[in-house]
């Protein structure tokens, strides 16, 4: 790779690294893993930089991040059998634990594909079509996955808590 291309790559990472790190964090739910996920995605991007650089490289990196996060989470879920549907213990709420944390924990516990849909739709503000392109599925699937994810979040934290979360956000 030429020095110019390396410079372009470095400039891209400097400009978009933080934004991509945040996507990685939301996709995997762990700060340390997010850093590793981002580095892995950027290494893959760098190897294909001569092709990727011609268009906007960010969607490519984002796609690698999200798909890698899904792939890793699935393997881990397979091996650990994480109960993704278990609601937080009632004692936690009684202890007045911050509902925002409950919501983030619930987000982390979503099946990886649903979590990815939530991140891409509501954090990245991508359309259903754009999200579908990244995940390699139909827009209908994105719609149904988003709907299921939101319903699950709503169910787990409860209608009353939803109001609490929203008012916390306003506060």
């Amino acid at each position: 790779m030429s020095g110019t291309e390396d410079d372009e790559f470095v400039a891209f990472v400097a400009a978009r690294g933080t934004s991509l790190l945040r996507v990685a964090y939301l996709a995997c739910g762990d700060e340390g893993e997010a850093e590793d996920l981002l580095q892995t995605a950027l290494e893959r991007t760098y190897r294909n930089w001569d092709r990727v650089r011609r268009d906007n490289p960010e969607p490519y990196v984002r796609r690698v991040i999200v798909n890698t996060a899904i792939s890793r989470a699935r393997r881990r879920a397979i091996l650990r059998i994480i109960p993704t549907h278990t609601p937080p213990e009632s004692s936690a709420r009684q202890a007045d634990v911050d509902l925002r944390h409950v919501l983030m924990d619930t987000l982390r516990a979503l099946p990886p594909r649903q979590r990815a849909v939530v991140v891409l739709r509501y954090w990245e503000d991508l359309s259903e079509t754009q999200t579908a392109e990244i995940l390699g599925c139909s827009a209908g699937t994105v719609k149904s996955q988003a709907s299921k994810a939101i319903a699950k979040l709503r169910l787990v934290i409860g209608e009353e808590s939803v109001k609490g979360v929203i008012s916390n956000v306003h506060a």
């Binding site: 964090y25 939301l26 925002r100 919501l103 983030m104 987000l107 939530v118 991140v119 509501y122 954090w123 939101i150 979040l153 709503r154 939803v162 979360v165 929203i166 916390n168 956000v169």
Partner: peptide, 12 residues
């Protein structure tokens, strides 16, 4: 909830 979630992710 979607808006709340969006803000929480930004804060987080």
């Amino acid at each position: 909830l979607e808006d709340g979630l969006r803000q929480i992710m930004a804060d987080e």
